[in-house]
Write a protein that binds this DNA or RNA. Structure first.
Lengths: 331, 331
DNA sequence: CTGTTAGCGCCTTCAC
DNA sequence: GTGAAGGCGCTAACAG
């Protein structure tokens, strides 16, 4: 068995002659310890290489200084950005982030929530998977603060972008700026609020531009590799003419552009493509792309602030529901 | 103050009439409890919604079931992939992952290590930042198992790709397949082992192909946004002719392609570009790109396996140093 | 200002 | 097979 050679409060207490508890308070700079003692104890602790045992602290205080971020897949750049922004914000509060991937699967999401509860996180940020109602109700019952990010579900607290407007802006940009009338919409699954809302925006924009809504132009596919190829197969197989593409996400848009290139089509000359998320704002290496994204506020920072507030206040859950403005970022 | 309404062992004990300790052993399926009792207690625990308190368990056992993964930036897709693969592998062992970003900064790396120690992780995987010797020595002294990923430093245990070969393959592909002789190398900082090794491979390939090594064709830049633009400014400003680009990473390669496009150059017709990491293998939306990547084994899985083994054996650190084979993946 | 006491929830050791 | 006792390292409450 390995001997745990970690320095504990007791070690410092023995060395300094104070009690464990005085040492603890000195290290926390509590007001009821003399300046001299504080300085002395801190110096000794430093010298001995003391590091506070978070586990033991949590045991007493009930707080772990960790929040869970639960989402589909960290290799999706959008989620990576959300995580990074969240992490940077909460670290200012001394918090760190436990990341759990659901792969958009309900069962995995449930397990992730339980796992995080077992690790006694102080709060949750989650981008819920489809069909997640049970999971969210379960989470709500725990009384832990939580907030949804990017997708709303019923009355659960959430911070989202204005997805109806996103769909509207993207579609009308294709119609007006590029003067297109046959706009294919490659959408995500409608059980995700943002997909449903973007469809609403798409239809509304078509209507305002005097264009017909045609069901065969709209595809709903899961956020996985490969699935997007079938859209083009189907378009070709059924001989559907189109002159523009509105993609559910920048990822879909880039994947579509790759496939269009393979078929000898140029973007945007032959087929303009508009995406959503504006990844380029953060990821310098992404190719140019017309995209709709948050206008000012960062979604994840807003969510993280609300969560931190709820944790500090000891409120069982934040009750806010925020919908942030978006705008189109042309290439 | 919020009442903590979590179900504890004691609650189950009271309900079943057994002692806390019998309940604990039943839930762990220890052999010295009767089948009937085990079944009964588990049923009650389930019904009550019991979730093991990892914090309290860790307190006793000294293990947290968490490993730290410390790297530059999770929004870099390469790192995101490494994290995801690591997570998937260690989750099979019941482990989870704490991610800490260093932004390639020594001080942040040190803080990350300390933070992870405070959270009592059972082991470390890190992609060390430049000038990290002190940090690694510090980590080594803690006695916790650790392993470096993607970059080697001195004698510290590591799993890396064969970076010399990567540099060689990329360069010779440009020279032989594309028949180019003036190959610009946009490299990372030489204090990172893979940059140094890839430079060795680059030089060696030039030499084998009968091409001269020209210092003004080699640039070393940090892995940050914007810096790559200056390479092209400098090439233009100094009137340096070039007909191919070897990029330190796929990200650099994509960024270079964007900049070449802006300047009206076509890839690969005018200027072929070869990168490293082969991101497309995992990220379906990335544009086509010639790239060098791991031949078979996944680097992060190898590292994670070694770390898990070290943790299970209770050995203070894994001592292996692994260098995995690479190959070129043409578009 | 500092010391004493108590206990967070769990698991390990030993007894019965 | 099961129960009783002890303690992981820390911090909160209360003395003095």
């Amino acid at each position: 068995m390995i001997k745990n050679n970690r320095v504990t409060l007791r070690d410092i207490a023995e060395k300094t002659g104070y009690t464990v508890n005085t040492v603890s308070r000195a290290l926390h700079h509590k007001p009821d310890i003399s300046q001299k003692t504080v300085a002395y104890i801190n110096a000794v602790a430093d010298e001995m290489g003391y590091i506070n045992d978070n586990i033991a602290s949590s045991m007493r205080t009930g707080r772990t200084g960790t929040i869970a971020v639960i989402l589909a897949d960290i290799t999706n750049p959008l989620f990576a950005i959300l995580v990074r922004e969240t992490e940077q914000l909460v670290s200012a509060y001394g918090y760190s982030v436990l990341i759990l991937n659901t792969n958009e699967d309900r069962e995995l999401e449930r397990r992730a929530i339980k796992s995080a509860l077992g690790k006694k996180v102080d709060g949750f940020i989650l981008c819920p998977c489809p069909e997640c109602h049970d999971n969210l109700e379960f989470l709500k019952k725990t009384g832990k603060p939580y907030i949804l990010l990017g997708r709303r579900v019923g009355e659960h607290p959430s911070v989202i972008l204005d997805d109806v407007k996103s769909g509207y802006l993207a579609t009308s940009y294709l119609a007006e700026h590029y003067r297109r009338s046959r706009i294919v919409f490659i959408n995500g699954l409608l059980s995700i609020s943002c997909a449903a809302d973007r469809l609403t925006g798409y239809r509304s924009a078509l209507s305002d531009c005097g264009l017909p809504y045609r069901e065969e132009m709209v595809f709903t596919i899961p956020t996985k590799a490969g699935t997007i190829g079938r859209v083009f197969d189907e378009l070709a197989g059924r001989g559907i003419e189109y002159d523009a593409i509105f993609a559910f996400s920048d990822l879909f848009a880039y994947a579509a552009i790759n496939l269009l290139s393979e078929r000898g089509k140029k973007v945007p000359e032959d087929i303009p493509v508009v995406g959503i998320d504006h990844l380029r704002k953060r990821l310098f290496y992404m190719p140019p792309l017309d995209s709709v994204g948050a206008a000012d506020t960062r979604m994840s920072e807003a969510a993280a602030e609300l969560l931190m507030k709820a944790i500090r206040d000891g409120s069982p859950a934040c009750t806010d529901r925020l919908c942030l403005d978006v705008k189109l970022f042309p290439v």
